[in-house]
Design a protein around this nucleic acid. Sequence first.
DNA 1: AAAAAGTGTTAAAAAACTCTTAACACAAAT
DNA 2: ATTTGTGTTAAGAGTTTTTTAACACTTTTT
Lengths: 221, 221
Amino acid sequence: MKTVLVVEDDKNINEMLGEVLHHNNYNVKSAYSGTEALLVMNKDIDLVLLDLMLPGKNGEEIINELKKIKNIPVIVMSAITDIEKKLDLFKLGAEDYVTKPFNNEELLARIKVHLKKENTLDSDVIKINEIELNTKTYTIAVNGNNINLSKTEFEILKLLIQNSNKVVTKSIIFDTVWDNFYSADDNTLNVHISKIRNKLKKAGAKDYIETIWSIGYKFKN
Amino acid sequence: MKTVLVVEDDKNINEMLGEVLHHNNYNVKSAYSGTEALLVMNKDIDLVLLDLMLPGKNGEEIINELKKIKNIPVIVMSAITDIEKKLDLFKLGAEDYVTKPFNNEELLARIKVHLKKENTLDSDVIKINEIELNTKTYTIAVNGNNINLSKTEFEILKLLIQNSNKVVTKSIIFDTVWDNFYSADDNTLNVHISKIRNKLKKAGAKDYIETIWSIGYKFKN
DNA sequence: AAAAAGTGTTAAAAAACTCTTAACACAAAT
DNA sequence: ATTTGTGTTAAGAGTTTTTTAACACTTTTT
């Protein structure tokens, strides 16, 4: 479950947002000023909702310092429509900007978008086109139909998918999937890759796994 | 360099966007309908700017099918302000939504946000003019287009580029690229250099590799 | 200017690597 | 105790890369 920090000086709005987020399965932390936000900010927080009209420090400073502590998505909420101000915020690293008054559902949708990006590496479910991989349940579905991969096969595919579009060297695969002590043979990896390709193909997935000759493999998306 | 696909039926707007993007160092591809977008869509495209009022298929279908082809960020541009429609688009996987008329700078800022995530992890990049070499992913791009080098070719070029403007002796190349035990023939190196030069030339790069007679080679920048 | 030494390019042979299938040993499940 | 599934190895076919060899060309030396 992801944690959102709501930074908003208006108590009513802050609480309202907190409830909305809570009902949509987020952990919520609240701060009522920029300085408080900086104090509360820690590694557990995954995204910041930042109101601009804060007492004390101005929004620009806050973004700057928040980003220094942890580089996570910041969505700015403000009544300001001045385009120059907006652009400044983007330059400072804001990921999104919603103009007050905004629709809660839209805000939720935008939160989702910006959390999704972070997701790819450590979320439970990784979805790439027709393939959906659940790292918690060790299941893989192609077009919604579950297929069976052995544990080793699963680990290899997971590693490749987590590093989509990048070459994963054979040595990295060995180090990640096998115990460091006993490392398998090159040929062993070939066989596993072959089996993975077969199962994916049989289930109707495209051919994503590319061989990078003498280096490793790449999940091409 | 990233490639943006602009899908917009109004020729003027399409061209205008194309120019704006071009001036901001993006490669641009244009499509004037949803069906055309699906045809043009390929692996080189990194982000889609999608106008909603398209002839033929409606925007929802297009997003759906684009995402099936390749899961890249889609930013919807539309005059529609109906919140339900907006939400539908987010549900279909749109990453962002800008209401027409919009500010070009803001659009650029949003494009940057959504492209950023692809970049973050690929950090080991050496860039020299039009050549970009990524030592992590074992890829080389000339003017943004990937080219294929074999492992040996890659190692040689990497070594030369890492020592730009310095002479790299043949014996250093042999020691670095080949196992120390069995060292290849001079002629072998010639052939590899020749192949590297060819591939770079074909991709449109200048002739950087200089022969230092009887000593070795130099990547001149 | 001629000879010698070194380089560039191409095609073909050789080597290295990969893919697939099958077999076997072993572990887990029935 | 039997069945089912997994991981590894081996072997042959297939693919890609690397090297060799030949010849034309360039630079250096004599």
